[in-house]
Computed example of a mutant assay.
Amino acid sequence: MLTKHVLFSGLLLFVSSFLNSISAQTIIGIDIPGLHNNDGQGIYDVMIRDATGRDVLIMPPARAVNAYDSCTDCCISPANKNPDFYEYGDGHIVSIPMFTAQIFIFSKPGDAAINDVALLKGKKVGARKGMPYGNHVESSGARFMKVDQLTKNIKKLERGSLDYMVAYTPDIYDAFYSAGKDPFPHTKTSPVASHEDSLLCKDTPENQALIKKLNDAI
């Protein structure tokens, strides 16, 4: 019992130390292939670095959000203040959108494409852990089956373990390409939601200046 207590205490200390290491003006990037990459060469990584001179610290979605919520003076990308997706109000500032990502419903190969969220009710729907899909999608009554990698949902949908999959473009297209497959059926001109991909920061004078640099470059 003592050993378990010591291990648990050590874990708490590690997590606390990690969160405290998110220093002033750290820019946290949500791991999204093609947009925020671990090698620092994602589209948003390059845009932010070129505009501000700062590197982006990449984390999985849920960890990135927790780190941002716990810091006092940091930023996160991509995010925004749209109440359909987030509860960030006063005390947070956002940049001009770097891009507007779109969310689509993907059907099994050979099935018809749909864009009616009501059809997801009671269905097994693949999604990515930690990613926001907006109240419109998340309140659909779907049975969300969440994984850490988009390619896993592609495989599950293809073999019939899922009824549908919800995913953002352009990153889902990158996942299909990596899997060597053409995108599954979806209504290409009718997304079920749109997300402005901005840099979100705690509202401080330093971060106001940081966002101005990015806005001037966009």
Rank of each mutant, 00 (worst) to 15 (best):
A167N: 12
A209R: 08
M165E: 07
E206L: 13
A62E: 11
I27R: 00
D73T: 07
M98Q: 08
N82H: 07
S17I: 08
I32C: 05
P61M: 07
I32F: 09
V125Y: 03
Q149S: 05
V15Q: 13
A51E: 09
P183F: 13
D163E: 15
M145Q: 05
S139H: 11
F106R: 06
K202E: 05
Q208W: 03
G130D: 09
R128M: 10
K156F: 14
L35R: 07
D197S: 15
G34N: 11
S178F: 01
N66P: 00
Y173S: 04
P205V: 08
T100A: 04
Q25G: 12
L210H: 05
V125G: 04
G134P: 08
P185H: 06
I211Q: 06
N20Y: 03
A64W: 02
D73C: 08
M145G: 00
N207D: 02
T204K: 10
R63M: 08
F8R: 04
G130S: 11
S140M: 04
I114Y: 02
Y88Q: 08
T52Y: 02
L119N: 10
P60S: 12
N215Q: 06
A113T: 00
Q149K: 15
N20S: 14
A112S: 09
R159W: 00
N37I: 00
S178K: 01
G160M: 11
Q102A: 13
T3L: 14
M98A: 15
I114D: 01
S139F: 12
H92V: 12
L13M: 12
K81Y: 06
T3E: 14
H195Q: 06
